[in-house]
């Protein structure tokens, strides 16, 4: 097996984690990774020797994600999608998730895709600001602003969840 393919295989677990944080549903996340891998293989020649495979693959996947989110917005499908469409509705992942994990995963899904991606890049994937700004194709200032606002939004959502839980307990 050639070196490039070996390097790509080695990045799949990280790509899957990033996709899962963007999309939550396991199958949808793996579909996104598959689209990313297919595009990467078609463009294997564009991959500069010496460029980190991680950065290259994350850039491809991020573009796929953002392009599709934009199309969804444009067609208004986000607004028109019937909830009964079972395949479309994100199901909780099948593995056991603690309540705390489920709450933070739900909250992450509720913040805007741009902020979600910026926050995940840095807080989970461990990219530096410079690397993350490069992958997301935005100035460092914009990245920082998205991270800050993403964290605030996440905190607000988690507080809301905690408050609702407290109310339910009181009602019992």
């Amino acid at each position: 097996m050639d070196e490039k393919k070996a390097a790509i295989l080695g990045e799949i677990p990280r790509l899957r984690r990033y996709a899962r944080s963007l999309l939550r549903d396991r199958d949808s996340a793996d579909d996104l990774v598959q689209d990313c891998l297919e595009r990467a293989l078609v463009r294997l020649d564009n991959w500069q020797t010496g460029e980190s495979p991680r950065r290259w693959l994350f850039t491809i996947m991020h573009h796929l994600f953002i392009d599709q989110m934009r199309k969804v917005n444009r067609r208004g499908e986000a607004a028109m999608l019937p909830l009964e469409a079972g395949e479309a509705v994100a199901q909780p992942a099948e593995q056991m998730e603690s309540i705390a994990s489920r709450e933070i995963i739900d909250a992450l899904q509720a913040i805007s895709p741009d902020r979600r991606a910026a926050l995940v890049m840095v807080a989970i994937e461990g990219f530096s600001y410079a690397e993350a700004a490069n992958i997301l194709g935005v100035p460092a200032g914009t990245l920082m602003s998205r991270i800050a606002r993403g964290r605030e939004e996440l905190r607000g959502l988690l507080d809301d969840t905690a408050r609702r839980r407290a109310i339910r307990i009181v009602e019992k």
């Binding site: 949808s28 579909d31 689209d35 969804v72 999608l81 909830l83 479309a88 809301d160």
Partner: peptide, 20 residues
């Protein structure tokens, strides 16, 4: 793939967290 449909659905599901 239709992974992005799930992303779109998430927008709707997030309605519960709208106040947040």
């Amino acid at each position: 793939s239709r992974w992005w449909l799930s992303a779109a659905a998430a927008v709707l599901l997030a309605a519960g967290g709208l106040s947040g």
